[in-house]
Every structure is written in C-alpha cells, then in structure tokens.
Design a protein around this nucleic acid. Structure first.
Lengths: 142, 142
DNA sequence: CGGAACTGTAGTCACGACGGCTACGGAATG
DNA sequence: CATTCCGTAGCCGTCGTGACTACAGTTCCG
C-alpha cells in the first residue's frame, strides 16, 4: 500500500524553482541540499540528467554551483518527469505464466493501458512550468 | 529509475479476468497462483481487499475457492486500483525544510498536481471493465 | 463424525531500491 | 598553489515486496 518512495522528481522541481527565484545567481549543492532537506550528493545525482538535457548548468570551482540554463517559462514539468522517471510503468506489471493465454492477453492490455496513463500524466505535467511554481511561491509569500 | 515494483494490481486484474472466464466455477488459490505465476498465499493477500469490497467471494472447504461476486461488466478497473493502491502519491513527495518558503509552496503545488494526476488515472481505468479484458482474451485466442 | 480440502493469517526470509554519508579525484577561481 | 566546488564510486541502514512455511479455522464428503 505504498508506492513511489522516489523523491527525485519532487527534489528536482524544488531545486529548479529555487534556482528560478535567484535571478542567475548560482547556488552550491550544499545550499540546495539544505533547502530541499536532502544530502548534497543526492542533489548532484538528481540534477545530473537535467544538466545532460540542457535544463541547468553546473560549474566547479570558487563561485561555481548550479544555475538554470533556460527561462523558467521554458521548463515544463513533463520534461523533468521524463528525464528522471524514464519510461517506467505507472501501473505495475508482473510476469504471468507464458503458457497461460489469459495471462498473456491481460498483460498486453495492461501495457497498453499503462502507456495511455503515462501519456495522461505527461500531458498534465506539460501544462505546468517552473515559472508557474515560482509565481505560486511569490503569491504565497506576499 | 524504477518505480512501481508493486504487482498487486496486475495480479488482481489477472485473477479477475481468469475468474470471469470460468462461468461461476470456483477456482482455488493454487490454480490462480499457477496462472498468475505467483504464490498462493500472495493470491489470498491480494484478493482480500477485493473480497472486502464485495467484488469476489471466497469459500473454504472442499470445492471451495474464489468466484466473482459481480458480473464482469460491473467491475471497472479503477475500483481495483483504488482498493489496492489506496491514495498513495503517484508523483513522489519529499519533506522539504519547513522553514523554506519555496519548499512549502512547491510541495503544495505538487500535492495538488498529484491529485489531478491520480484522478486522471482512475478516470482512464474507469472506462475499462473485466468484461473488456475477457473479450480481448477471447479475440486473441480465437 | 472424522478426514480431506480449502481459506486466513502470522512469521521468517532474500532481494532490491532508496537515500545518507564518506572519500577522493578533477576543474575552476583568486 | 590553495581554495572551493562538482563528479562519482562505494558502503551502509532502512523499507517495501513477494516467496515460503506453518498452523488454525471452516466446509464438505464418505
């Protein structure tokens, strides 16, 4: 009765929103880690794929750190989701007896359903950008 | 990069479809377990909530076993999903620093988003019933 | 009525994902 | 250079999952 113990997506969204609120100032892993209440190493691991996709930049050395590589308005959440969750099944699957016709057919149906559900998720997340989250922060704070 | 290692939903859907194909003949946990390629005890654990909700019946003793308590057409998959997955978050959450305004706001936004996504999933699953899966099996077999 | 067949449930176990943490190498700054 | 930061490998504790055993309770049949 408990799934999705995976916090990568939530942490990434938090970090992106945090960075968006800094106006180009770079933030170190440690600062981000305190804000998100996780370990600095975890921050770097989570942000790695986002850097690979060109959403953020990271720079070593003094005054280095992380910064957005795109405008907040140009970062929809489905990109983050896809980068971090990949194409994992949303429903769960299982390996039925290969000799069972019911099993094979049900599995095929579930795979199709899973794809549709995954598409629905990304469609919903596509409508939200980091800029939206940032303005929610500012409205809440004011 | 891997979520949903939970096979309860898939197993339950398999069993329900299997039972629907038996026309009121009861099936033992062991028969169901072979078909789904899992352990008989696991079958009983997974089916427990479905029995509690009145989707299936189970009877101990000789010639006992499991049988549908409703017509296949009256079992939409979202009921199975809700019974087995409860209201677990689909996206993942995390506990941000309570003193961080960004963290609190982002988390609220994610909770809202999660609810919308969960609703989308159940809406999609509501459109599919065990009867649909059964006819898919029969079309595939013929 | 006694034994067989089945469910119900507790308990133990192995495995894997998740995240915290340390350590160390490499790159950029001053 | 020395400092500061990222990049990554590695180890560890924790937890969810599902297999498996064991046994009590229930129903049916001879």
């Amino acid at each position: 009765m408990s799934r999705s113990t995976n916090t990568r997506f939530a942490v990434a969204v938090h970090v992106l929103t945090y960075l968006a609120g800094l106006d180009d100032r770079a933030a170190g892993s440690e600062e981000l880690a305190r804000s998100a209440n996780v370990n600095p190493v975890y921050i770097r691991q989570v942000m790695g794929p986002l850097r690979g996709a060109g959403l953020v930049r990271s720079k070593p050395g003094v005054h280095g750190g992380w910064a957005l590589a795109l405008l907040p308005h140009d970062i929809p959440l489905d990109r983050v989701w896809t980068l971090l969750q990949g194409d994992d099944p949303v429903l769960g699957l299982h390996g039925p007896d290969p000799g069972c016709a019911t099993g094979r057919s049900v599995q095929r149906s579930l795979i199709d359903l899973d794809r549709e559900v995954a598409d629905a998720i990304t469609a919903r997340l596509h409508a939200v950008t980091v800029a939206d989250l940032l303005s929610a922060v500012r409205e809440g704070t004011s």
